[in-house]
Each structure stands twice: as C-alpha cells, then as structure tokens.
Design a protein around this nucleic acid. Structure first.
Lengths: 144, 144
DNA sequence: GCTAATTCGGACCTTAGTGTCCTATTAAGA
DNA sequence: TCTTAATAGGACACTAAGGTCCGAATTAGC
C-alpha cells in the first residue's frame, strides 16, 4: 500500500521539516541521519524535487529544503510521486465490477482504501511533527 | 496491499464456492470462465492446495474443490498464502518505532491496516456470495 | 581560478512478482 | 490396455521496484 521508496521519502521530508533554520540539508546527510541507502535516497529526493515537494540548491553547501510550509504539505503529496496510495484497483475482485453492479466485496474494501487515502490527504507533515489531533476510529455497522 | 495473484485466488475460490454440485472444476475451466492466464492460475491453485484452501483430484475429470465450507473460509486464509495482507510494516515510518514510543503516524496508519486485516479475517467467502451484512463505516474522532 | 561539496542524470545490477512452457504423473472411460 | 484429460512441478522469460555506481554540471569558499 505504501512502497519502501515512499517510506524513505516520508522520513526524509519529516527530517527536513524538523529543521528550523533555513539552510539546506544534503542527501548524504539525510541518509546518514536516517540510516538509509544514500544513493537511492538521492534519487528519491530528485523525484521529490521534480514533483515540487522539495527544492534543491546545487554545489557546495547545497542540499534540499521543503518547497512549502510543512502545514501545507500532505502525506499524500509526498507519497504520490511514487504512485502508491491512489487506489489503482477499485475493488478486491480486480476492478472488473462496474459501479452500477459492484462486486460483493466492493463496499467493504473501498471503505478501507478510501479511509487510507483520506488519512494521507488530511494529515500534513506538520501534523506528524507535533501530533495532538485525535486519531481516526473505526467501528463496524454491526456494533452500533 | 493485495497482489494480483491474491486477486486471482479470490476470484477462483469464489467461483468454486458458487458451484453447487460436488464435482471438481479444472484449472483450465476456471481460467476460461474468469478470463485469467491459465498457466499462472494453475500454479496459483497448486499453492492454494498446499495451503489447504482447496483440494484437488488428478487425472481425467479431476480438478479443484473447496477444502472446507465457504462459511468457514475467510478471505484472509485465501490471501495469506501469497503473503499480502499481513501487516509487514507496523507503521508508516518503516517500522522503526517501538511500541512504547510509536511514531506520530503510527496510530493513524495502524487504524487503516488493522481494519483492513480485520475485514479480511471477518469476511468469509460465503459472505461474498450472498452479501447482506452491514458494511463497515468510518468516522473520525473530530466528527463526534 | 582552483578545489571541494553537492545535485543531476543515466547506466547498470539484483530480486520478487508475474507469466509461459514443457514434461511427468495420475486417473477415468472406451 | 490405450487414450485422453487433468494435476504436479520445475525451468525459464519478462517487468518493475529497489539499489549501486559513475561521470558531468554547478556553486561556495579559499
């Protein structure tokens, strides 16, 4: 549901968000801090830059910064460049049920996928820095 | 979250469950009915048999049957042989937060993964045949 | 201007998931 | 007994994700 690359991206973005001063952080420094594969993280950060999540400055003392305030950056925007969380299969049965006649697993499963998507869209990077929002709770229709 | 192979397995098992008489259904027939890659589905059915989800009989007029009543067969048991739905990463941040000090995304995300797992465990193949159970509903803590 | 630090971007490798193909084995029925 | 239909199971191919490596371009500071 979330790829390894997406996890790397999230970790890196959170580290950048924690950085109070405006100086950039190099890919190598991020990788060392988080103990991630440096070369691959560098590639991942490049993709984040192309997607506008981070900005970069080249040369000595260069590195990466968040491209926008952490409050305005949803987890979905960080993860989407790696095309993970957008529901690719509409339903459990492989997406061959049309909306008019959904398969019997459709409602159950779309509840999960939609709530996952919503959490990623409604949670900002800043939310994860100092978390005090109430978390989502699940209940079944049979419980009520 | 659920692999292509798992989807194939679910579709095949549902087809077997719909079969009222006790005669087995061949892999080729299942593949034709569902329009799935026949050779790969055959391999998938073999894995289901090893895992005890279906039973097989060889030779002419052989094929596959459900190994147990559809009521007693959870979706999780069908999907687990393909190691998909068991939460491999405990949290969004790559699982490096220990339970005592969960990362800030932990509660949010585990809500999703646990509800997904619970749906797969609580829903039987029979439930999907004639669906009349109330579906899960989601609400946020902020709504109440 | 030179050097060091850094991003940029492409080439390449490895592995797992998916898919194909072929041969051996088994069993039903003529 | 022979033929035919089926599972069993291994070998192999393809693709994408994850990961490594290297050279080129860029920039700060000396």
């Amino acid at each position: 549901m979330v790829s390894q690359t997406g996890i790397y991206a999230l970790q890196a973005v959170l580290l950048l968000a924690r950085r109070s001063d405006g100086s950039p952080l190099s890919a190598a420094a991020i990788a060392q801090e988080l103990d991630l594969p440096a070369d691959y993280l560098a590639k991942t950060l490049r993709r984040l830059r192309v997607d506008g999540v981070v900005s970069s400055s080249r040369g000595a003392h260069g590195g990466y910064r968040l491209a926008c305030p952490a409050e305005d950056l949803s987890l979905a925007r960080v993860l989407d460049p790696f095309e993970e969380t957008r529901p690719r299969r509409v339903c459990l049965m492989g997406g061959r049920c049309d909306p008019a006649h959904p398969c019997s697993a459709h409602d159950r499963w779309s509840t999960v996928t939609h709530s996952a998507r919503r959490i990623l869209e409604d949670t900002s990077v800043a939310d994860l820095l100092h978390d005090d929002r109430p978390t989502l709770t699940l209940r079944t229709g049979t419980d009520s």
